[in-house]
Nucleic acid binder design. Sequence first.
DNA 1: ATTTGTTTTAACTGTTTGGTTAAATCGAAT
DNA 2: ATTCGATTTAACCAAACAGTTAAAACAAAT
Lengths: 207, 207
Amino acid sequence: MVSVTENTEQKIIDAACKVFILKGMDGARMQEIADEAGINKALLHYYFRSKNKLFDRVFVEIFSGITTLLSDVVSSSADIVELIDNMVHNYIHLISERPFVPDFVLHELNRNPQLIVEQIKLNGIDFSKFQQLIINGVTKNKIRPINPVHLIVNILSMCIFPFVAKPIIMGFMLNGDEAKYQHFIDERTEHVTTFIKNSLFINPAEK
Amino acid sequence: MVSVTENTEQKIIDAACKVFILKGMDGARMQEIADEAGINKALLHYYFRSKNKLFDRVFVEIFSGITTLLSDVVSSSADIVELIDNMVHNYIHLISERPFVPDFVLHELNRNPQLIVEQIKLNGIDFSKFQQLIINGVTKNKIRPINPVHLIVNILSMCIFPFVAKPIIMGFMLNGDEAKYQHFIDERTEHVTTFIKNSLFINPAEK
DNA sequence: ATTTGTTTTAACTGTTTGGTTAAATCGAAT
DNA sequence: ATTCGATTTAACCAAACAGTTAAAACAAAT
């Protein structure tokens, strides 16, 4: 009986993830989520009393996937080179599997910046270790001096933006060709890591 | 009488821009737009028959501002260095004045990619000239070989993403300090141009 | 003074939507 | 056999919302 319960709850969350990510909070409909989960609206409200409660639950779930990855990458990287390789590779890989997640997260965060407060409580990121890796890289004369905040924003930008801006990239640069876009994404990991390292390292031989 | 008409129409469009940008298509309410314009709902429908028609008009207006800037920058740049300087400076400057525009445009474009088709008809960007500037830079041995699509995506990413991701940057990296974020943005133009040039130029002296 | 297009007022329609309710059904555990 | 939570059915409510309508007021041009 317990297994049935968890099963249904998970089915609801999965369905809610799908619908919320595609339509956003404002565009999503409870009926559509119920349909997607293969249940009816009454049962949906039986599990999650309101749309807001369901959304909050789903948002935490989605967002923590992103921050967890960042935490893991930072804590498992020994130096700045490893950090860059891991971050770029893992983020592009993660987002490739759920390409609409970034637009969803960013849009809902702009709609209600309060949401981030809850997330920080749940998933505190040790930004200090990230900074330390960069400082180490600089002091050992391996890379140019750089503001850690700018660097991490640069990395995240170049990994995430291409997915959020897919319609623009396809429309204006790739003649609406889906295959070309896929090829562009396939090249992206290699390109971004090289681009960043070229910028950071004074002497290319040290890479 | 004509002037009055244009005045009201402009007032409506200004109000619609404001509300649509902040709330998105799904979150915006016709009543709120009417209030913001200082008129009533009846008159709003008298000018723009439906929410969709009003949205389309507003979206074209907002989006063309972005593409026009890109066109101007490309056509007014003599070489790759000028292009980078102009693009980074002008985009960060433009977005600084209306920081919620990128999230609005990207979100609506993902919600309805069809919108881009209309935009391409109205604002065809000469992507070829952009490519030519890069190829020239490469052949004259001034910069490393680079895929033009990746380069332009890199530039746009690093200019636009920091605004879309403001809640994340502030929440996780700047302790929620608005002043620190403003300082970060103020540094951004200089940082991004340097970061890109460091990556492109093999010999820093050639910059 | 009359016409014409603009604007307001205010009520209204029809639909969508989030959420509720009550009764019935079903399945498993006791 | 009974109990209990899970699930369905189906109807319902109240609020929000896009859009309409008709009549009146208004302002400028003729």
